[in-house]
Nucleic acid binder design. Structure first.
Lengths: 227, 227
DNA sequence: GCAAAAGTATGATTTAAATCATACTTTTAA
DNA sequence: TTAAAAGTATGATTTAAATCATACTTTTGC
């Protein structure tokens, strides 16, 4: 991992925001900042868990992959988000991979330091537990869609999720630039099928596209497709 | 909910085992025991969260359902297991349903009492956080199977999971009796398809069936189908 | 104890979406 | 800057599994 020249400001991520003020100097001492280039793997499925990451800048995808090219994107992380937290618990290998979608700066603490942090920061442990509860809910909701919805509905759902997580700019485009391949993996389908669905949606003016950016024109129509 | 004549012994579930000894009298005062008959709903998707459940005896399925008959079983709970924990977090409705598979006795505490319990039992909060981490891992693993594996592999996986959770008796049958419908819902398929796959597996002596019980004859073969 | 309901097996048919195929465009890095 | 690689659109074909259909068996509750 490449060290980053930029160091995190110690008050913008989940960890810094939630832990005791008195613990910040300990964080300052133990946290390391790393830089990853676009497309670089931050960690991979099956790899030994080294620690927990917090995203200081940029965007990251959390995904599972199979064989040649098939992947399922579970999540995206943006500034301030914790990731690598699936590596906590009892197994000591990551169940997922994390890949930088653009140049990113991450803040990293080892598992053992994070465990110490939890021991003295009960509020953090509590918040983390609540956080997991929410993540589980989301994961199982998506599991439901994957099982029960058809592709059109899943594509619609994925667009709404993206808008929700990244917001949109003045022109009404969602603030994230993804390849169709990644968008397809997020919706749980192939890029061919995704491509067909998205051009259908564009034709009916439900969404608009400009370069790699997507804007939602008729949110209610998308929402209807989800149900 | 029907009160149960049987009261839990205060030392067999996740909660009683993990909390401070000093807290047990509080539990004794606040926990309520309820009885549910086979097929009865303990809670349903969309219902307001009342509290957390611990299974004292019997078996329960945790599932999502759609419209008429389609359902996906996410989990089973057995004696000692916590359930309803997906209702913690910030939303206040259950994202899943829980149904008794046989006559069950449950131990129930309200959300507010459980929150108080967490406040004073840091070890419990920590263990619960770890527990969630494991559950998330499992959920996302199953999500992967649902997306990537074909039915045969998912059926194989579900049988291995059941053996793992419920163990097998002297004759080599898994200690749980489920309808084919439920087994299919656990594997994420229809009962027709499940029925075809399972009779194929029986024909090739990979599994054996006796009434509603299933035994695994060639575990390695099943494992191979999973990968 | 028996009728109705629920569950099961198996075959035939349909269908949504994956895969295969091709031509084209954009991005990347030497 | 330019060739190779990666990404994209669209059409044709295949396929796994859902759905439909029917006959049969087991379970349930009056």
């Amino acid at each position: 991992m490449n060290n980053s020249d930029i160091n995190c400001d110690l008050h913008s991520c989940f960890l810094c925001k939630t832990c005791l003020k008195e613990w910040i100097p300990a964080l300052e001492k133990h946290r390391k900042n790393f830089l990853f280039k676009k497309g670089e793997k931050i960690f991979s499925e099956g790899e030994n868990v080294k620690g927990i990451f917090f995203l200081y800048s940029g965007k990251v995808k959390i995904h599972k992959q199979w064989g040649s090219g098939k992947q399922l994107i579970l999540h995206f992380a943006r500034e301030g988000n914790i990731f690598g937290f699936r590596g906590l618990g009892n197994e000591n290998v990551y169940p997922v991979s994390a890949t930088a979608l653009e140049e990113v700066v991450v803040c990293f603490v080892t598992t053992s330091f994070f465990e110490s942090t939890l021991k003295v920061n009960h509020e953090l442990t509590y918040k983390l537990m609540k956080f997991y509860a929410g993540e589980m809910r989301d994961a199982e909701k998506r599991m439901g869609s994957l099982f029960h919805s058809e592709v059109k509905g899943r594509v619609a759902e994925s667009l709404l999720l993206l808008k929700n997580q990244f917001g949109e700019n003045e022109e009404g485009f969602i603030n994230i630039s993804l390849t169709k391949q990644d968008l397809a993996s997020y919706a749980g389908t192939t890029y061919e099928t995704y491509s067909r669905v998205i051009s259908e949606l564009e034709k009916h003016k439900v969404i608009k596209q400009s370069g790699k950016f997507i804007g939602i024109l008729k949110e209610a129509r998308l929402q209807k497709l989800v149900d």
